[in-house]
Write a protein that binds this DNA or RNA. Structure first.
Lengths: 194, 194
DNA sequence: TTCTTGATTGACGTAACAATAATCAAGATG
DNA sequence: CATCTTGATTATTGTTACGTCAATCAAGAA
């Protein structure tokens, strides 16, 4: 090799390579295949585990339980969520297909107020409203009364019609002559978000 | 091809291939690299969480979601008769987009029981469960306690963990040493049908 | 003395691959 | 007719291969 001018740093360094154990986990690793849905939990668990191993004091529950004790600890309890007789996964579900019967006549409305809490409809819930559906007595409807939109349960008896709240703090309203009632649509579903 | 004698079963079967979702995990998988020492724990955890769901009807979110943006009306329409062409039309909303953050990790479970009515979750409701989401204190979760599923509100304070009902008729449960808790997923939405 | 440099090696995440598993419907058998 | 078999079809799974990134080295430059 001919002479090198200046600006010739570097060069061979036998044995200079990265040292074993210098990686994130300081130990050998393995490649495994896991369900996509489990990836975040496993990663989080590894992260918290690495911190603990680093000698730093970490609260065991600082991170979410799903990243917790992958090892199980064992107890029992009954209650809460009895399972149906069916087993295993059924067919997949598409929300648009499952919740929308008449696409051209379906609209969403956000609930304001709490007059329907007895029916499990709360402030902020999203209502799926089907305008192609014929309203029947007992159904929850979007109604227009004297130009104002409201969510109520429709009651029809003979020629008499009511809009009933599902909260005792609100009055029932009977539709009388001279009152303009329009049933705008029928509430098919209510979606509450957490 | 000349004539076939007997003993000629088999043959072409277009479309006969293995169905999607027929694997051990019934969902897509990913390959990740983890420390060798963590492999047994992760495998055990995957096994146990799969077992826990064995008797429950769970529906995965469709792998081919339809697109159906539908109009979202403003909550307060002061005057007139709302119609699709109205100015009051705030936005459009697609349920598959709006309600599903992690498609591959989203599953649906139907509620049985009434321990969570205080949170607006009633018997028969359809829960949208996000399994990729980290559970935090205060969130409603699907939890596995000794192979039994339950829907509860998770409470974490320091090192203590509880599963709380939202109905005074049911007891709160504190997770103690030796108890086996797995958070199967976080409840993102509840859908009530009318 | 500190920083830079080209080279050396280990670590990591993903792609690629092959074997296995699940599914299909026509044909064979009892 | 009911059940099993068959060859083909397709998804899943675990492992290996691969390329990029990261950590380390010591001579040279400032």
């Amino acid at each position: 090799m001919t002479q090198r001018t200046s600006f010739s740093h570097g060069g061979l360094r036998p044995g200079s390579g990265r040292k074993t154990g210098s990686g994130r986990y300081a130990e050998p690793t393995e490649v495994i295949r896991i369900p996509q849905s489990a990836v975040p939990a496993v990663r989080a668990w590894l992260d918290s585990r690495a911190e603990a191993m680093g000698g730093v004091t970490v609260q065991p529950f600082t991170s979410a339980p799903s990243s917790l004790p992958l090892p199980l600890f064992g107890a029992r309890i009954a209650a809460g969520f009895p399972s149906p007789a069916d087993d295993h996964l059924e067919d997949s579900l598409d929300l648009n297909v499952h919740l929308v019967q008449h696409p051209a006549a379906t609209f969403f409305v956000r609930v304001q107020g709490d007059s329907m809490t007895g029916a499990g409809i709360y402030h902020g819930d999203l209502l799926v409203v089907d305008r192609a559906r014929q309203a029947k007595s007992g159904e929850i409807v979007i109604a227009v009364i004297n130009g104002e939109l409201t969510v109520k349960r429709l009651k029809i008896e003979g020629e008499r019609v009511w809009l009933l709240p599902e909260n005792p703090h609100y009055p029932a309203l009977e539709i009388r002559d001279g009152m303009e009632l329009v049933i705008w649509g029928v509430v098919a579903h209510a979606v509450r978000s957490f």
